[in-house]
Computed example of a mutant assay.
Amino acid sequence: MTNVRLNNFVVQELIPAALYQHRGDKAIECMDLRIVKALDLLRDNMRVLGVDNGFIVNNWHLGGTRQFSGLRTPASTDYSPSSQHTFGRAIDFITKTPIADIHRQIIDNPSVYTEITFIEIDIHWCHIDCRVNSDGSALTLWSPKRGVVSIEQYRAELMVK
């Protein structure tokens, strides 16, 4: 194992199968550690709150079909040369925990999740990444249906959920 310490995940959960088979645990070097640490912290904090129902990023190593929800290589049908996944800066995960609860945790605690700078909303999974936002904002919320949504507007929507 590399010196990267993961409390809640193994390297295979963040890396596609072929890359892991090629590099083993050193494949974690292809991920931006800001998003890896943020994911680990988020999972720890959801557990402390008593609302952790597991986060599934990649599960190929357990016989599942998910392998491109962390680092995304050209082997993925969802590959894009400009995706944050391509640079190891984004993670998608599914969970039984309501996504609204996870979003609320991040939005209400900006000093805790300083590395999470982008959240995709209005989707049935959780997408977080650590890009540098071109407008200088600390956190951008983006919807494939609505475009950029203000934190205030989304916080009000979360109050209803």
Rank of each mutant, 00 (worst) to 15 (best):
T2W: 11
R5K: 14
N7D: 15
V11N: 02
Q12I: 04
E13K: 02
E13Q: 13
E13T: 10
L14T: 05
A17Q: 13
A17F: 13
A17T: 10
A27F: 05
E29I: 07
E29F: 09
C30S: 09
D32F: 05
D32P: 04
R34E: 12
I35D: 04
V36T: 06
A38Y: 01
L39G: 10
L42Q: 02
L42S: 04
R47A: 15
L49D: 07
G54C: 06
G54F: 11
G54H: 09
F55I: 00
N58L: 06
N59V: 14
W60F: 08
H61K: 11
H61N: 07
L62N: 07
G63I: 12
G63T: 10
G64W: 00
T65E: 15
T65R: 03
Q67G: 06
Q67K: 07
Q67R: 08
F68E: 07
F68C: 10
G70M: 02
T73G: 13
T73Q: 04
P74G: 04
P74A: 06
A75C: 07
A75R: 03
S76I: 04
T77D: 15
T77I: 11
T77H: 13
Y79C: 12
Q84K: 12
T86H: 06
F87H: 11
F87I: 07
F87K: 14
R89N: 10
A90T: 03
I91W: 00
F93H: 07
F93P: 02
T95P: 14
K96C: 06
P98G: 14
I102H: 00
H103K: 06
R104T: 05
D108A: 13
D108S: 14
N109T: 06
S111L: 09
T114R: 10
E115T: 07
I116S: 04
I119M: 13
I121V: 13
I121Y: 03
D122T: 09
D122C: 09
I128F: 05
D129W: 01
R131W: 12
V132K: 05
S137K: 13
T140G: 11
T140A: 14
L141M: 08
P144E: 08
P144K: 05
K145F: 11
R146E: 15
R146S: 10
S150K: 10
I151N: 02
E152W: 06
Q153E: 09
R155T: 09
A156T: 14
L158T: 04
L158W: 01
L158H: 06
K161N: 14
